[in-house]
């Protein structure tokens, strides 16, 4: 852990939340309720192995292959299961598609439900009370604060994940990307575009 030394030469303690997590962890391990290596494996999985790159690969393929796109829309859960992208926080998944007349955005007003199995852990703002309450009440204002302007003639659809269904947005494919491979397209699928708070990254803004 990073040590912060204050000007008087003493070391600041870590933040309260970090101390609390350490205390709970060492108690669970000392009492033999949790295997420490297993805990580290969980952390490693969500820090390094399961994340938005997984979802981006699925979306890019949906852009490139109309049949796959239709399969995702018809049976998100089954299609993801075939790809091994199922499991905890992702047992039932519905894909919703942005079009030239509809913009979708996902929220969990009750807590912070999120498709971990496909996108990894949720960003901090997704769990914040401000996002959770305002996304349903004033979705257009919230989207604008993310830099996403939805024209008035486009319908906004907000999906409140109150049950065990996890929603994932298929963003619109950016213009001028016809010649890109699926791997290159995946670079344009940013995490927030699958939540619906942003659009897919335009080609010129993506790292070449």
């Amino acid at each position: 852990m990073e040590q912060i030394t204050s000007s008087d030469g003493y070391t600041q303690p870590p933040p309260y939340a970090a101390l609390r997590v350490k205390a709970i962890q060492s108690l669970l391990v000392d009492k033999g309720l949790v295997v420490e290596d297993a805990l580290n494996e969980v952390v490693d999985l969500y820090e390094n192995r399961i994340g938005p790159k997984d979802g981006a690969a699925v979306i890019a393929r949906a852009w490139a292959e109309p049949e796959f796109r239709q399969q995702l829309l018809d049976d998100g859960t089954g299609t993801l299961a075939e790809l091994g992208m199922t499991g905890f926080e992702g047992a039932h998944v519905v894909f919703v598609e942005n079009t030239d007349t509809v913009h979708n955005v996902v929220v969990c007003t009750l807590c912070s439900c999120y498709p971990w199995a496909v996108l990894g852990l949720p960003p901090a703002w997704y769990k914040a009370p401000q996002y959770r309450s305002r996304a349903v009440m004033e979705p257009r204002d919230v989207l604008q604060e993310f830099g996403t302007f939805v024209p008035d003639d486009k319908e906004v659809r907000v999906w409140d994940s109150t049950a065990e269904i996890r929603y994932i947005v298929i963003p619109e494919r950016p213009a001028g990307t016809e010649d890109l491979t699926v791997e290159q397209l995946a670079e344009l699928v940013n995490r927030d575009s699958m939540i619906g708070t942003r659009l897919a990254t335009p080609r010129q803004e993506a790292i070449a």
């Binding site: 295997v35 290596d37 297993a38 580290n40 494996e41 969980v42 999985l45 399961i50 199922t86 992702g90």
Partner: peptide
């Protein structure tokens, strides 16, 4: 107890 080598499959098993 859940062992480290069982974590991946456990996480990937949907309820």
């Amino acid at each position: 107890l859940l062992q480290a080598n069982e974590v991946h499959d456990a996480i990937r098993t949907p309820t």
